[in-house]
Amino acid sequence: MKRLSRYRRHRFAGPVLLVFALFMIGTTFSVASANTRLAASVMSRTAAIDEGRQIFLKGCSSCHGLNAEGGKIAPSLIGVGAAAVDFQVGTGRMPMADMSVQAARKKPAYNPDQVAALAAYVASLAPGPAIPDQQVLYYERDGSTAQGGELFRTNCAMCHNFAGQGGALSRGKYAPTLMKATPTQIYEAMITGPQSMPKFGDKIITPSEKLDIIKWIKAAQNEPSLGGASMGRVGPVTEGLLGWILGLGLLVGIAVWLATKAR
């Protein structure tokens, strides 16, 4: 302690203490909030709905209304179904971190049991698309990569890019990359149409065609980059940028060295 106190009048002492204090607050909070994990697997259905309602009142109702009826800044959740909740909360998009134009994928705020409880509560308000059953998602067995690629290019590639890397929409909105999406999340996005994305009902893209698309996206996720750095797989834009900046910069440097007289 004595050794430390020697530095108490150092000009960096203030900032260092501030950073230390912020770090301590953050870690203490995360340790404390991690203790709220529930054993939801043993909860009955009504208990799950009750639990979900409690989470909803605390975490969601300030925007979506006390009875999920929606408000000025957030839509009604009546009839959106369990699939929409599982997608939005399970990918961390909801609750939103700020009032930006788009909710971004981030670390989920709730654990899977809490997400399931929330989904059960919202599904109990009115019927809506359910979370696709794991039994349905045998995309490896039932899907076709080639068929999925054709469907993807027709229905998805215009926004999500031909390699599923995502792309820009208007006014700061964007279609996210699909490289982190799980099969369940891809399926849920297609049937619920989250944020800017339109819905793709089962008559427009049949359930078996949805499995084709999932299989193609999984293949794209696992595609190794055989030609060196993939640079985002968005085509000539990044490649050209790197070529012009790094390649041309290197050439300019060599030209300068060439013309300098040796000493």
């Binding site: 027709t154 229905n155 149409g193 339109p198 819905k199 009902g201 008559k203 427009i204």
Partner: peptide, 14 residues
């Protein structure tokens, strides 16, 4: 072929 009921509100089809 498509029937009007195949498209929900907010849905698109190519």
């Amino acid at each position: 072929p498509i029937k009007p009921s195949d498209l929900e509100v907010g849905a698109v089809a190519q």
